[in-house]
Structures are given as structure tokens and as C-alpha cells.
Amino acid sequence: MNILVCVKQVPDDFAKVHLGENGKPALEGIDKVVNAFDTYAVEMAVRLCENHGGRVVVATIGAEEEVRPSMVQMIAVGANQAYIFAPNTADGDESSVAAGLAELVKKTEETIGESFDLIMCGKESTDEISSQVGAMLAEKLNLSFVSSVIDVKPAEAGLCVKQETEEGSASYEVSCPAVVTVAKPEYDPRYPNLKSKMAARKAVIPYLSDALTPVQPAVRCMNYQEPAKREAGVKIQEKNAVDAVARAIALMADDKVL
């Protein structure tokens, strides 16, 4: 099975991001990591190929030097090949990113001379959290689509995928080729071992500088606002519990919480 995982590099989601003087998120000095949901997708793809055979290709859109470390990391944890595509749009909206990815899928298939049976994306990226790109990619490629997948197995008709739902999970059979977006499975992504990391650093990762057609985004972000800062709270300083509870109830009653 040939699997393509679309990977996005994002600012470390453990870091606190503030707006810079230009009104945009100030990302200087913040580590870049692979989007967590994309790491789940790569792990799921690698496990599928380890158990049933196949090949995992990862691809991303970005500036070569900036995103190469993330691609190296994905090879170190089991991807067989990686490709980097130069961006097709600046400040792209979800639709233009999906258009870029659809073109990326085709160009990668042309490059390797084989078509993909399965295309995987994280269900969302931890920076923008729009959860739209995977579905839009399926639409643009005219392929079947399942979102929030937490398990995937080969099936007679193609693949059996388990989808995480509000209530539990649902299983679907989908024909290939298909697009799925991946949620957090039961397992964690593996750490790269030292040898695989050293080997991955030497991997040839092609950079396709003009493979994607420039796209003008239809939706533009006008400005960002940081969440309103929490106002200072009220300290309840009564000396005993009975008085403290009474004071808390009174405060909540005043604010019509109760």
C-alpha cells in the first residue's frame, strides 16, 4: 500500500504565542515542530506498512531550510521518503492550501511513478485549528473521505477505518484511493532511535521549488486578537470555613451565578 502523509510544521504548541507589533503572531524564537496530529498520521501509516507492507511518503509545503528538520524527523520515525514543495500562496486560506496539497499529491505521484492508495492528514493543525483542509483536499481530488480516524486496517473493499465520535467510535469501509484525517489514536508516536536519526539526517529530500501553481486566497485574515486577559479575582479571606463559604455564596448571588 502506498501512503502519502501531508505534514505541516507548526510553532511548538507548548509555547505561549503573543501578537507582534505588526499584529501577527510573533513566532521568532519559538521552536518549530511537526503538527501533533500529523505525527499521529505518520505513526498510523508506518504501523500499517510495518504490519501489512507498503511505503510511506511524507510531503510538506514550506521554505526548504525551515521545514527540512521536520521532514528528517518523519524519516527517522519510519517514513520512507520525503518531499518539500515551495509554497503556492502566502497567508493562504484553507481552500488554497488544499488546492496546493491536491497538486502536491499529483506531482508526488508523478515523481515516484506510482499512485497513492491512501492520503492522510492530521485532523487539524495545532496552530490554525480549522479542521477543513483534509476534507477540502478530498473534495478537490474527488476521493472518498473519513475524518477523525483513530485506526486503519486493510479490508476486502479497501480499508476499514475507525472514526472517533462524540459518543465513542464508528467503523467504516472505504474504497481506495481515499483521504482520511487522523485524530489521536490509542498509542503515541514513537521516538526516533539514534541510528535512524543519524541516517535520516543524510537522507536526500527533494525540494520542488516551482511545482505548485500560485493561488490567490479567497479568504483573508484581517487581524488577530489575543484572548481578553482574565480580570483579577476576589480573595476570600474569612478565617473559618463557614464564613468563607457564606462569603463565596454571597458573591455568586450578587453576580447572579446562583
Binding site: 528538520p69 528528517v72 521516538y191 526516533p192 539514534l194 536519526k197 543519524m198 539526517r201
Partner: peptide, 12 residues
């Protein structure tokens, strides 16, 4: 290369 390995070990 060593810095890269150190980052992974640190994360682990």
C-alpha cells in the same frame, strides 16, 4: 548532528 540527537534525548 549531535545537537539534533540531544534535542530528541531531551524530549524523551
Amino acid at each position: 548532528e549531535a545537537k539534533d540527537l540531544l534535542r530528541d534525548v531531551k524530549e524523551f
